[in-house]
Every structure is written in structure tokens, then in C-alpha cells.
């Protein structure tokens, strides 16, 4: 008798929690097939092109390679991150108060779509929840840094 009285409110609360969770997801559109496709492709590309230095878990390598996870630089410089994937970076970079000097080689062979997939992956991993970063937005950012010299893996 008592159990019967308790069950309906419990179900109601569970339904609210479920709704709340899925509601948040749909804001991030992380349940959309397109997001998942970007994210999964991006993950593969990340493992192939980025994870050697930045590590699979995004921690980087001490003061040699900067972290992507919990990185103030990542939070504040998304456009620059997009350009850097294609053209690399030879300038010293301060991340979380630490200066990094190892040059990051660019990967000019990556398409706009592939870069969009990588940034969607890294900006929805670890502590980031920025949702899908569409190829049209990435192309726009990339056109602004077009013509930069591609950085190799050694300091000149």
C-alpha cells in the first residue's frame, strides 16, 4: 500500500531528471547525428595528428608541450587555435602562466572540414562543452589567417 503511494512521485522525479539531462544535451546538440559524426571523426584525427605531443588525455608534456585540457589559452583563443592547426606556431605561447617555446608544426594537408572536426572534438572533451563547431565557421576563421607561412617542427 505504502509502496504504491511512493512509486508515482518517484517516477515523476526521475522523469524530471531525465528531461533536464536531455534538455541540456539538446542545447549542446550533442545528441545530434551531425555533432556525433564531427566528434568521432575529430577524435580519430586528434589521435593521429595531435595526441603524440598533447597526449591522448590532453595533458601535454610537462613544460615541453602545452595542455589542451584545462587550458586558459584554449578558452580564450579558439580562432587562433583553428589557424594554428593548419599553419602551426613558432612564437612562444603562455598557457596557464607557463611559457612554451617548442614550435608547433602546421598540418596544411588537413581540410577545413577535418579542422572543424578536430576543434569540435577538443572543444567538447575534458572540461569543454562548446558544442559543434561547423565547417562554415571554421572556413571563415581560416580565410582570415590565409597566406601565413606554415611552421615546420624546428626553430629557425
Amino acid at each position: 500500500m505504502q509502496i504504491r503511494r511512493i512509486v508515482p512521485p518517484l517516477l515523476f522525479i526521475a522523469a524530471i531528471i531525465l528531461a533536464a539531462c536531455s534538455g541540456r544535451n539538446s542545447d549542446r546538440s550533442s545528441d545530434s547525428p551531425k555533432f556525433l559524426q564531427y566528434y568521432r571523426q575529430g577524435e580519430q584525427l586528434y589521435v593521429q595528428h595531435c595526441s603524440n605531443c598533447h597526449q591522448r588525455n590532453g595533458t601535454g608534456l610537462r613544460q615541453v608541450y602545452p595542455p589542451l585540457a584545462n587550458s586558459d589559452y584554449m578558452r580564450g583563443n579558439r580562432d587562433e587555435v583553428i589557424c594554428m592547426i593548419r599553419y602551426g606556431n613558432a612564437e612562444p605561447l603562455v598557457v596557464n602562466g607557463i611559457q612554451f617555446v617548442q614550435p608547433m608544426p602546421g598540418i596544411p594537408s588537413l581540410t577545413d572540414l577535418e579542422i572543424a572536426q578536430i576543434v569540435t572534438y577538443i572543444y567538447n572533451s575534458w572540461d569543454y562543452e562548446e558544442g559543434i563547431i561547423e565547417v562554415k565557421d571554421v572556413s571563415e576563421v581560416l580565410s582570415a589567417c590565409e597566406g601565413r607561412e606554415v611552421v615546420g617542427n624546428k626553430k629557425m
Binding site: 603524440n52 605531443c53 597526449q55 608534456l61 615541453v64 608541450y65 614550435p103 617542427n153
Partner: peptide, 16 residues
């Protein structure tokens, strides 16, 4: 070698 971007960073993580 320090400018190696293939297996060396992983090796150094492991050597650490």
C-alpha cells in the same frame, strides 16, 4: 630527438 613529433613525445611520457 627533441623536434620529433611522432613517437618521441610518447616515449618521453613513458620514460618520465
Amino acid at each position: 630527438f627533441t623536434s620529433c613529433r611522432t613517437i618521441c613525445p610518447i616515449m618521453k611520457t613513458q620514460m618520465l
